[in-house]
Amino acid sequence: MTYGVRVWGPTGRLELDENSFTVGVVYSVILKSGAPTPGRTRFIAIPGVDPSTHSAVCLPVAVYDTSGQNINSIQYTPIISAGGVTIYFGSPAASTGPIGVSSQRLLVMRYR
């Protein structure tokens, strides 16, 4: 082993090593709908990104109302495509309706 970490469980069995399945973050940014331009979606070009090897998630980083009755509680939806990620600030299935306004962090990860 030239680098990495190994973790053993309580029974002494190796549970995680440098060859285990992991993901690496390849892109991270704070998003907010309407910034820098208004719209229901935004495409972010990320060279090398592909749906077969990458995944993405948006995580709230600001005050987040969990009642479901506020536009601050609308989760952004990232969809991976070849060469980038499309962020939907509202429902991907709707062309109208409310869009979220809270700040959220986009994480794009590559499977190892």
Rank of each mutant, 00 (worst) to 15 (best):
S102V: 08
E15H: 06
Y3H: 11
Y76H: 09
T41S: 12
T2A: 12
V23G: 04
C58T: 15
P36C: 09
P36Y: 09
D65K: 11
S33W: 01
S55P: 02
G34M: 01
P51V: 02
P51R: 01
I80K: 07
G24F: 04
S52H: 04
Y76V: 06
S91F: 03
T66Q: 09
A94C: 05
S20K: 02
V57S: 13
A93G: 04
V108C: 13
V85R: 06
I87H: 08
G97L: 10
M109C: 15
G97E: 03
L107K: 06
P60S: 11
P92D: 12
S28I: 02
T37N: 14
M1F: 01
V61T: 12
S28T: 14
G83I: 03
S73C: 03
I74E: 04
I80N: 03
G9V: 00
P38D: 09
A62K: 00
T96G: 09
Q69W: 10
L16A: 11
T41A: 08
P60T: 07
T96I: 12
I74G: 08
V101Y: 10
S67H: 04
G68Y: 11
R105I: 08
M1G: 14
V85I: 08
V26Y: 00
G100W: 03
P98C: 00
M1P: 02
I87C: 01
S102N: 15
P51H: 06
Y88C: 06
P78V: 05
E15V: 14
A94S: 13
G68Q: 10
T11N: 14
D50Y: 00
I44H: 09
R6P: 00
S81T: 14
Q75L: 13
T41E: 13
Y3C: 05
V49H: 06
V108A: 07
H54V: 05
V5T: 11
V101M: 13
P51E: 04
I80P: 02
G24R: 14
V7T: 11
G84Q: 11
P78A: 07
Y64K: 04
S67R: 07
S91Q: 12
A56I: 01
A62D: 14
N19I: 00
S67Q: 00
C58Q: 04
I87T: 06
V5N: 11
Y64M: 06
P78Q: 05
R40W: 09
F43P: 00
I99A: 08
V61G: 10
S91A: 15
L16S: 07
I44T: 02
Y111P: 00
R110K: 15
R42C: 10
T22Y: 06
L16R: 07
S33Q: 13
S20F: 01
G100R: 12
P10L: 10
I46F: 01
S67L: 02
S103E: 15
A62M: 05
V108M: 09
V7N: 01
